[in-house]
Simulated assay, not measured.
Amino acid sequence: MAFLVVALVLLTALCVFQLVLVLAVLRRLREHESRFEQLAKAAGPMGASDPAAELVGRRVPELAEHTGGSPRTVGFFSVGCEACHEQAPEFVASAAATGASAIVVGTPADELAGLLEGVQTVVTGAEGERLMKAVDIKAFPTFLQVDGEGLIVRAGIAVAELPAVAPAL
């Protein structure tokens, strides 16, 4: 009987020890999660590097075909991108004053293209995919300011990041 009491006490002590370890690990995980959230907020919506920023300075003649030879804002949208649907109305509002082109990739593009009604040029389908690859778009949405010759002068992941382009005369 004494053997069972000792075994029960040891088993209880072992369970309490494991419980303490589990609680300590959970506390550490919460600390790390909190640090990660702070770092993510400090880094911004796309993390430490903005994939759109690396496009500035590139000349993409394929874009010049869709800008009418004048400076223009070009937006790249993906059908399955929630942020694209959220940014579309703001893009349309800014496009109304300056003229803009929208490239929509994915199918069916009808709903997103409908949200972009009012944009001067909306490109979908295979041509949209070709332009996305030519520019090397890595994130959606991506907004570019392009001169009339296809030189990307500014880039961002939000419409608000780009100053308005003066309308072409």
Rank of each mutant, 00 (worst) to 15 (best):
A2V: 15
A2P: 15
F3I: 15
V6D: 11
V6R: 09
L10W: 07
L10S: 06
L11N: 14
L11R: 14
L11I: 13
T12R: 11
T12F: 12
T12L: 13
L14G: 12
L14K: 12
C15I: 07
C15V: 09
V16R: 06
F17D: 14
V20S: 11
V20R: 08
V20E: 11
L21C: 12
V22K: 13
L26F: 05
R30L: 13
H32G: 11
H32I: 12
H32Y: 13
E33S: 10
S34R: 08
R35Y: 13
F36C: 08
Q38P: 04
Q38H: 11
K41P: 11
A42R: 09
A43N: 08
G44D: 01
P45E: 08
M46C: 15
G47A: 05
A48R: 15
S49P: 15
D50T: 06
D50C: 03
P51A: 02
E54P: 14
E54Y: 12
V56R: 00
R58E: 15
R59I: 10
P61L: 10
P61H: 10
L63H: 10
L63T: 04
A64R: 00
G68D: 07
G68N: 08
G69K: 12
G69H: 12
P71I: 03
R72P: 03
R72T: 02
T73R: 03
T73Q: 03
V74S: 06
G75T: 02
G75L: 05
F77P: 00
S78E: 14
S78T: 10
G80W: 13
E82V: 03
E82Y: 07
C84Q: 05
H85I: 03
H85L: 09
E86Y: 12
E86S: 13
Q87P: 04
Q87K: 13
A88D: 03
E90C: 13
V92I: 01
S94E: 09
A95F: 02
A95R: 01
A96V: 00
A96W: 07
A96M: 07
A97R: 10
T98W: 10
T98H: 08
A102H: 01
A102N: 01
I103M: 03
T107R: 13
A109W: 01
L112F: 06
G114R: 10
L115T: 00
L116K: 01
V119C: 08
V119W: 08
V122L: 04
V123R: 01
T124I: 00
T124Y: 01
T124K: 04
T124V: 02
A126N: 12
E127K: 13
E129G: 07
R130S: 04
R130Y: 04
L131G: 00
L131S: 03
M132R: 09
A134F: 06
V135A: 00
D136T: 08
I137D: 02
K138T: 11
F140G: 01
F140L: 05
P141Q: 06
P141L: 07
P141V: 02
T142D: 05
F143G: 00
L144K: 05
Q145C: 01
Q145L: 02
D147H: 11
G148D: 05
E149Q: 14
E149F: 08
E149L: 12
G150V: 04
V153M: 05
V153A: 05
R154C: 09
R154K: 06
A155M: 09
V159Q: 02
V159M: 04
V159T: 01
A160Q: 11
E161P: 07
L162E: 08
L162P: 04
P163K: 04
A164T: 11
A168H: 05
L169Y: 14
